[in-house]
């Protein structure tokens, strides 16, 4: 495992911890899209079915379990927690996420490495992860003001994607048989979706002001 991959995993983990911290400390999930969180839960469940079929390393297995458990915990809090669910911006979170699921499933049936159950689900999870942030970005755009922890959460998620791209570039040059174009193309699309957010994040950071997205 190279340093970029490790930093990618760590920033991914940090983003989830920030989100859990926000929900736990403020007992509020305002500014967080339940639809994006549901999509991530689905992404992890679909991709990490290989927990039962392939063993890579203790690190991989532990991270997979952490990602599945944390994403389910977040969805549970936002839907069921007596206090937390009251702060959910339901009327702002109206993205039709089922269309994303349907489109990604259709694409996975058409484009995958091998037409087997696990391979189709794996490709589906990669495609879905690439677009899962969309409801979250739309919600932030609509509410305009972004609180600190929510801003950090999205920033670290974006950093995770950026590190994974560096990881693929590194692997491409250091490994003889590294070809993973499904991950790479999807990963590029996913990172590009953050470009706009990053732009405003850096402007607010430079001016030392609150993060605001244009209406």
């Amino acid at each position: 495992m190279n340093i970029f991959r490790f930093l990618g995993d760590m920033t991914h983990l940090i983003s989830i911890l920030i989100l859990l911290l926000k929900i736990y400390a403020t007992k509020s999930c305002s500014g967080i899209s339940l639809k994006t969180q549901e999509l991530y839960a689905l992404v992890f469940l679909a991709r990490y079915l290989d927990l039962f079929t392939d063993f890579i390393s203790v690190y991989n297995s532990v991270m997979k379990v952490v990602f599945i458990a944390s994403s389910l915990a977040i969805v549970w809090c936002m839907r069921r927690h007596r206090v937390v669910r009251r702060s959910y911006d339901k009327e702002l979170d109206t993205f039709r996420h089922y269309f994303l699921v349907a489109a990604c499933l259709a694409l996975a049936l058409l484009v995958q490495e091998k037409f087997t159950f696990l391979e189709v689900l794996w490709a589906f999870s990669i495609y879905l992860e690439a677009v899962a942030i969309l409801p979250q970005l739309v919600l932030l755009q609509r509410s305009g003001n972004v609180d600190n922890l929510t801003g950090q959460y999205v920033f670290f998620l974006g950093a995770y994607r950026a590190f994974y791209i560096l990881n693929w570039i590194y692997r491409y040059f250091t490994e003889t048989h590294f070809s993973r174009w499904i991950s790479c193309v999807s990963g590029l699309v996913q990172t590009a979706l953050y470009a706009d957010f990053f732009y405003y994040y850096f402007i607010s950071w430079k001016n030392n002001s609150k993060l605001q997205l244009p209406a």
């Binding site: 991959r5 290989d50 890579i56 991989n60 990602f67 490495e113 091998k114 794996w122 990881n167 993973r180």
Partner: peptide
């Protein structure tokens, strides 16, 4: 040789 790629990333 198989062209299967080990899914060693998360």
């Amino acid at each position: 040789a198989s062209n299967e790629v080990t899914k060693d990333e998360l």
